[in-house]
Design a protein around this nucleic acid. Structure first.
Length: 751
DNA sequence: CACACCCTACTTTTT
DNA sequence: GTAGGGTGTG
């Protein structure tokens, strides 16, 4: 982040430009800050909060809403750095996390208990599948994911899913009652889906004025980051909290050119119409960019200028022209990946840059496949900032299901999952019968399993009774004062024992099965870590965090190249960025183009976001051919490349034809007309100087100690290097040697 | 009812 | 290439 404030700086206004200052000091009524990319938006928000607190406003009267956990964490840290200790801290959180917290207090009003479960996409799909089955709608005639999207869309738009525009295929198959049945299912399961979290708060605040009034007294000052990404339900939420007629102290910050979540129900019109919705609002534009050099900024501006519906602003910089934008073409993704990896290595050597200064931006996560291999081949550390992969593994979900049931036994999705993990003689047949009986009696699977219907066979009934007994014991344990990690250990013991036994008996898949056991063990360790950090927190709190926080929320800092999707890169910046896969069909993505002009505009904003991540160097690359799963497509360069004026582009040079495999590096050949292939220079000269294997000591890190990493598992430190950030080289079990940021691992008692 | 094996359909972005 | 569904066997 640019412009880091000096901790404890007495003057919150010094170093701000005129517009920033106006935004920080604005006092009366609603404020819209149009903040271009890299214009110091976070600085404005944090200074604005800090100024209020210094004026005597207690921190707990401030609510700051963000879109991602990453942004929330950063804002919290920066406000704390400005005012730390002098007052109570503001409430900073995502819309979803804040809503969840409120709804736990208000749970009875919506037919839930405080320990309700949050259903994510997969849980929604599982529920929908069961509902479809119960309604006799074949899964072949309707895709459950389409139904899910329809429900989501309805909730994002502030409608109940009963009013969802269901897919025509579903209606044709006679599934009109699906929405109602889905809602009933969630109610019985004591669960809420993501969309519910927002919509229910909005509805409660609208319907119960005293609740809204109470909340307004608690949070008279409200700030919203990334306002362009809010959906209609979130707007209702805000209107109820900060009614326009009261001229509330509401600050929203955003950039219509960076609206990239339309597909998830976000509506830029919230931003375009802010002045109509909150009459009398003041508008401040931040147009000076402190991030990128001139050519990069001009190129990005030129691309986004092709969009029609914009509030319109043009960013400028006084940082000088800098490097031109480089455009490279390749014959294949492999060549592209190798070239990028080689280029990173060369720049590390020539320009005093470290791997952490680089990012490779991807339109879709799958584009990273060739890159990983290429970076490995040249020995440059690179990590993909991925989504929720760890928590999506089957065995991890099984374990989570058991933990969820210990908190909320009525969670049907978890019940269905846990009853079959490990297998206990309750298969599809019994589960279908139980499910049907439960639906008829308006009971959760758990409740119905206590008195199983005769349609369930005797063997399965006894298995169900054993299972229910376990759940009862777990719940009793979870609601006692037993430490959460101990609860988890007990709850997961039967699953782990069964998995271990299975792993021992399996001949061919032993490796794989013990890996799964380890994953579940990792989950327990992660929970232990969590309860060490927050001794007061409940199992429920941890489960909520698992739902609402993704791996992508980890700030990709430090000593590795970041590979990340453009969506995940939003809000971040890197000295050097490569945007790969700039082809028609990939970026803009073919699926988005099907949505017509609006789809294309959003892709263009995505390109704008990607390009404006770069501070000093930006490379756009495309491939003449790209393989999807089976076939190879011939590709044309992205139209967005053509939208960059030539003056800002480094002369394009056609790469050499592909050389036969085996020549390892540099198949992409020369990039400049200097006649020197990358291979000959890079391979020989680059000696990895970034890490030393010296037995260094930094804080409590030392060579030989065991550490734990959330993703990579258990490993032994083999090197410590100090720099701006401490980096450890760790030999991870089953993973190999990796460089990691010290703050990402924790000490771990030996095996 | 569980498991192994085969086949297919699939990849946009994620709170 | 692979995950998840469908089918057949023990």
């Amino acid at each position: 982040m640019p412009n880091s404030p000096t901790p404890g700086a007495p003057d919150l206004l010094s170093g701000l430009n005129t517009a920033q200052r106006a935004a920080v000091t604005h006092h009366a009524g609603p404020l819209l800050v149009l903040a271009g990319a890299g214009s110091g938006k976070t600085r404005v928000v944090t200074h604005r909060i800090a100024l209020r607190l210094r004026e005597g406003l207690p921190g707990h009267h401030v609510l700051a809403l963000t879109f991602t956990n990453k942004a929330a964490a950063e804002m919290r840290a920066r406000v704390d750095a400005l005012v730390g200790g002098s007052t109570t801290l503001p409430t900073v959180g995502t819309f979803h996390a804040t809503s969840a917290r409120l709804l736990r207090q208000w749970a009875p009003r919506i037919g839930r208990s405080a320990s309700f479960t949050i259903y994510d996409d997969d849980d929604q799909i599982a529920t929908i599948k069961r509902v479809l089955k119960a309604q006799g709608v074949g899964e072949k005639s309707v895709k459950p994911s389409e139904v899910r999207e329809a429900f989501d869309r309805a909730k994002n738009e502030g409608r109940l899913p009963e009013a969802a525009d269901l897919p025509p295929t579903l209606l044709a198959a006679g599934g009109a009652g699906v929405a109602e049945a889905y809602e009933a299912e969630l109610l019985r399961s004591n669960a809420l889906d993501f969309g519910d979290l927002i919509l229910r708060v909005a509805q409660l605040l609208e319907r119960e004025p005293e609740l809204a009034a109470q909340l307004r007294r608690r949070w008279p000052v409200v700030l919203v980051d990334e306002f362009q990404d809010t959906n209609p339900a979130q707007l209702r939420w805000l209107r109820a909290l900060s009614p326009p007629e009261t001229q509330p102290d509401l600050t929203v910050v955003g950039d219509d050119d960076q609206a990239i979540y339309g597909w998830r129900g976000a509506d830029v019109r919230n931003m375009l119409a802010f002045e109509q919705t909150w009459p009398g609002a003041c508008v401040v534009r931040l147009e000076q960019n402190y991030r990128s050099t001139g050519h990069i900024l001009a190129a990005a501006n030129a691309v986004v200028a092709h969009n029609a519906e914009r509030l319109g602003k043009t960013l400028f910089t006084d940082a000088g022209d800098g490097h031109r934008v480089e455009v490279e073409a390749f014959d294949s993704p492999r060549d592209e990946a190798r070239w990028v990896a080689g280029r990173v290595r060369a720049l590390c050597r020539d320009e005093a840059l470290g791997p952490g200064d680089f990012a490779v931006l991807l339109r879709t996560a799958a584009l990273s496949l060739d890159l990983e291999e290429a970076f490995r081949a040249v020995g440059v550390p690179a990590v993909q900032v991925r989504g929720r992969s760890f928590y999506e593994r089957a065995e991890v979900r099984d374990a989570l299901a058991w933990l969820r049931l210990a908190v909320n036994p009525h969670d049907d999705v978890a019940f269905q999952r846990a009853v079959g993990a490990p297998p206990r003689g309750v298969g599809d047949t019994s589960l279908d019968a139980l499910s049907k009986a439960a639906a008829e009696a308006q009971l959760s699977l758990y409740s119905r399993a206590l008195m199983p219907p005769t349609s369930v066979k005797a063997k399965a009934r006894s298995a169900l009774s054993t299972f229910s007994g376990l759940l009862d014991a777990h719940r009793a344990l979870a609601s006692s004062h037993t430490p959460v990690s101990q609860v988890a250990q007990t709850v997961l013991a039967p699953l782990l024992d069964a998995m271990r036994a299975h792993a021992l008996t399996a001949r061919d898949r032993r490796e794989e099965l013990s890996q799964r056991v380890e994953n579940v063990e990792r989950l327990v360790v992660a929970l232990r870590e969590f309860s060490r950090e927050q001794p007061e927190a409940s199992l429920e709190a941890w489960l909520e965090r698992v739902k609402l926080v993704s791996d992508a929320d980890a700030v990709p800092e430090g000593a590795a190249v970041s590979m990340l999707t453009v969506h995940a890169a939003k809000g971040l910046e890197f000295p050097v960025c490569f945007v790969i896969g700039f082809e028609e069909g990939t970026f803009p993505h073919a699926r988005a183009l099907r949505d017509g002009e609006a789809g294309l505009d959003e892709e263009r904003r995505l390109a704008y976001v990607a390009m404006t991540r770069a501070r000093q160097r930006l490379t756009l690359s495309w491939c003449r051919e790209r393989r999807t799963f089976t076939e190879t497509h011939h590709c044309a360069p992205s139209r967005f490349i053509g939208e960059v004026p030539r003056d800002h582009i480094e002369a394009r040079v056609e790469p050499e034809p592909i050389r036969p495999a085996g020549r390892a590096f540099g198949a992409a050949g020369r990039s400049r007309g200097d006649g020197q292939t990358r291979r000959s220079r890079d391979a020989d000269l680059y000696a990895d100087p970034v890490y030393d294997d010296e037995a260094g000591v930094d804080g409590h890190w030392r060579v030989g100690m065991w550490v734990w990493h959330g993703d990579l598992g258990r490993g032994r430190v083999v090197g410590v290097s100090r720099g701006v950030r401490t980096t450890l080289q760790v030999e991870f079990e089953g993973v190999g040697r990796r460089s990691v940021i010290a703050s990402w691992v924790s000490p771990y008692d030996g095996p």
